[in-house]
Design a protein around this nucleic acid. Structure first.
Lengths: 208, 208
DNA sequence: CCTACCGATCGGTAGG
DNA sequence: CCTACCGATCGGTAGG
């Protein structure tokens, strides 16, 4: 085991608590209790609360960078767009705390997050953009779409919706079956209809 | 003057600071300083920090409820949809702290916000939905659209995007003119294309 | 990884 | 609207 068991448990509980209560709303005492150690033991692994914050965010964005680029780089397929969109949604739905943490951090430290997005997210956004531009020139994508702005909104739509999903589902009619599933399906539909020119059956992004 | 000058100044500074640093990240001492009074004076106007939080949120949602319903109820016009969407965007762009506060509060107190949305937002969402349903039956709106889910996502798109707009614009190419304006225009385009069936020129919601 | 302890700041009150 | 003050908790350190 490369990193100690306690260290990764601290990261796990810190992620959970920062997401639920925010950084300022979470004491290192509370994290230590959740882990099952004393406060000074936590501070042996992370020299300060600020260092723990950075480590939590680092881990989140590192995992993001493990999952998404390879999907984006994969051989062109008919449903590439759906694949990337679903993978992004899956990543955050798998643990909605990731979305909440990212939104909180963006509100708490806009400049810090901006620099991280520049480093972690922009590269694969640029790849997606070059493919989408090609599809736009070929007429598969709405000519009027402002692609960089579209992608930014799409990411915000996915991350933001998942971050507050538990509150949003409550606004849907109660009788509806799986309200989360409905929100997700409609998110996908909105993403597609905002992108693809009206050729219902032929929507691939980069079919060679 | 119905409410004292100091009281409204406290609400104003509290809104600003809660939005920027969060509730837990803002001390009542800091708010008192921003207002120019001592801490116990602030606590004369609001018996506790919690009471101040509720008052700040009340004011925000009350203003929302002053602006939006009348717009929604106004006589049917060709560009009703754009009108409502723009009014909503204007409301939050006029003071982006409103969006940030709402997002933070949703993360901090999901159940509390859910109940308030039920009271403040749901009524006019229901009005919008009945009009959109009619438009959908008449074929102006995508048949596949899940309208309740669509509206929920649309509100989240507007509020969420504005809440983190300063960070998002930094992801757009630097050369672009007014990047905020670009984001806003694309938001509008996404909202429309997700809703209206492909009849480019005829997009009104409820034209009698 | 622990006990013991630090100064600073927190939300809030007494009393005028 | 103020001065003066409260106990509790904060992040962090000494020392082992």
């Amino acid at each position: 085991m490369p990193t100690s068991d306690v260290r990764s448990k601290i990261l796990e509980e810190a992620t959970r608590l920062f997401a639920a209560r925010g950084f300022e709303g979470t004491s290192i005492q509370a994290i230590a209790e959740a882990v099952g150690v004393r406060k000074p033991s936590l501070l042996y692994h992370f020299k300060s609360k600020e260092e723990l914050r950075q480590a939590v965010l680092d881990e989140l964005l590192t995992r993001w960078n493990e999952v998404l680029p390879e999907l984006l780089m994969a051989a062109a397929e008919v449903d590439r767009f759906d694949g990337v969109l679903d993978a992004m949604a899956d990543f955050f739905l798998e643990d909605p705390d990731r979305a909440r943490l990212l939104v909180r951090e963006t509100l708490d430290r806009p400049e810090d997050v901006r620099q991280r997005l520049e480093r972690y997210v922009r590269p694969w956004v640029d790849v997606a953009l070059s493919q989408l531009s090609k599809a736009q020139r070929e007429g598969h994508v709405h000519a009027k779409a402002d692609l960089p702005a579209y992608v930014v909104h799409l990411v915000q739509l996915v991350v933001g919706s998942i971050a507050v999903m538990d509150t949003l589902v409550a606004l849907l009619p109660e009788d509806a079956g799986d309200r989360r599933q409905r929100l997700r399906a409609e998110m996908r539909r909105m993403a597609r209809s905002g992108l693809f020119a009206p050729r219902p059956k032929n929507y691939e992004v980069a079919a060679e």
